[in-house]
C-alpha cells in the first residue's frame, strides 16, 4: 500500500521523501480493560485473509501458541501475584511499529521494509528475499518467515485501512474498547486519563509503555504495572536494537567497503610504481637477473 508517504526504506542509503508529513498515528492497547476474548485475533484474520492451522491445546489460554505468518497478533496470558492478590494479565502481542525499527535497519533488500510517514512499519513481501535478518533486528521477536513462500510477515497496522481513513481491524472490533487508534498525541493524552484512573484505583505504578530505546512505538500499552513490563509475558523493560546488530549494520559496513577500495588502490599503485617482478630465464642458469620493469622511485 503505497497510498501513504514512505519516510524510510530498508537497504536504501539516499534521502527518503520528506516534504509531506502525515500526522503520526498510534494504537493504544489498554491492558487493564482487555478481557482476552480474542475478537481482535479473529478480526485480524478476517481483514487480512489469514487462516492459521488449527493447533493443539498446550495447557494455557494462548491460542495459537505463538505468532506466525498467519497469526499477526496474539493474546498472551500471564498469572502473577501482586500485593497478595492473583492477577491475570492479558497482553495483545504483535508488531510495536517502532519509530526506530530494528527490522528495517537489518533488512538487506531495498524496499522490503518501509516506514510510512505516519509511523507504520510495513513489510513488502514482493521485495522480501527471505533471509530473516528482520528477525535478528527485531527487539520484540515479531517477524515470522512463512514456510510456504519464505517471505517475512507481521502486523501491518492495517496500513491499507489506515490509508483510507479507517482504524485497524482489531481496534474496530474490540468489544470492551480496550484498543484505541488515533494520532500519537491523542493516544498519549487518552493514556494519561486511563493512568490517572488506574492510580486512583490502587495501581500506583500504572503507566504508559512507549519505550524510548527504540525511539518510541506506534503501538503503546497502558500497563497496571508499568514498572515491571516483564510481568506481561516478558515484555522487555528497555527494548533496544541489539548491540551486535548495531555493530553489524552500523558504520562498520561502509568502513569495510572503503577498506576493499584502499586495498585495490594500494595494489594498483604498487604496480604503477614497482611494475611486475620478473626473473629472466637465462640460458645460463647462474645468471638469472631480477628486473623490475616499472621505474623504481629510488633509482630516479
Amino acid at each position: 500500500m503505497t497510498m501513504l508517504d514512505i519516510q524510510r526504506r530498508s537497504a536504501t542509503t539516499t534521502e527518503a521523501p520528506q516534504v509531506r508529513h502525515l500526522p503520526k498515528i498510534a494504537k493504544l492497547i489498554d491492558v487493564s480493560t482487555c478481557i482476552g476474548c480474542k475478537a481482535c485475533q479473529v478480526a485480524c484474520m478476517e481483514w487480512n485473509d489469514l487462516r492459521d492451522e488449527v493447533g493443539k491445546n498446550v495447557g494455557v489460554y494462548d491460542n495459537p501458541a505463538d505468532l506466525s505468518d498467519q497469526s499477526w497478533t496474539l493474546m498472551r496470558f500471564s498469572e502473577t501475584e501482586q500485593n497478595g492478590k492473583l492477577e491475570w494479565l492479558i497482553r495483545k502481542d504483535g508488531c510495536m511499529h517502532c519509530a526506530d525499527p530494528g527490522c528495517l535497519k537489518a533488512c538487506p533488500s531495498p524496499g522490503a521494509i518501509i516506514q510510512y510517514s505516519n509511523g507504520i512499519v510495513d513489510f513488502q513481501q514482493d521485495q522480501c528475499i527471505g533471509c530473516g535478518y528482520c528477525i535478528q533486528g527485531c527487539p520484540f521477536n515479531i517477524p515470522r518467515i512463512s514456510k510456504k513462500d519464505n517471505k517475512a510477515y507481521k502486523c501491518s497496522l492495517c496500513s491499507d485501512r489506515v490509508a483510507v481513513g479507517q482504524a485497524p481491524a482489531c481496534v474496530k472490533t474490540c468489544p470492551t474498547g480496550a484498543i484505541h487508534f488515533g494520532t500519537k498525541e491523542d493516544m498519549q493524552d487518552y493514556a494519561e486519563e486511563r493512568i490517572t484512573d488506574l492510580k486512583a484505583r490502587g495501581y500506583q505504578n500504572a503507566g504508559l509503555y512507549d519505550p524510548q530505546g527504540v525511539g518510541g512505538t506506534h503501538v503503546m500499552y497502558v500497563l497496571q504495572h508499568a514498572d515491571q513490563p516483564e510481568l506481561y509475558a516478558n515484555l522487555p523493560a528497555n527494548p533496544k536494537i541489539a548491540a551486535t546488530v548495531s555493530l553489524w549494520k552500523g558504520i562498520t559496513k561502509p568502513l569495510g567497503l572503503a577498506g576493499f577500495g584502499l586495498i585495490a588502490l594500494g595494489a594498483f599503485f604498487h604496480f604503477i610504481k614497482r611494475g611486475r617482478k620478473e626473473v629472466h630465464e637465462d640460458e645460463d642458469d647462474q645468471l638469472a637477473i631480477v628486473r623490475q620493469s616499472g621505474s623504481n622511485g629510488r633509482d630516479a
Binding site: 528477525i135 551486535t244 555493530l247
Partner: peptide, 19 residues
C-alpha cells in the same frame, strides 16, 4: 541459514553469528 538451521539457535547467538 534460513529456513533450516537459524531457528535452532538463540536469537543472540544468531545475531553474533551474522556479525
Amino acid at each position: 541459514w534460513r529456513p533450516w538451521f537459524a531457528a535452532s539457535f538463540s536469537i543472540d547467538l544468531v545475531r553474533l553469528a551474522a556479525l
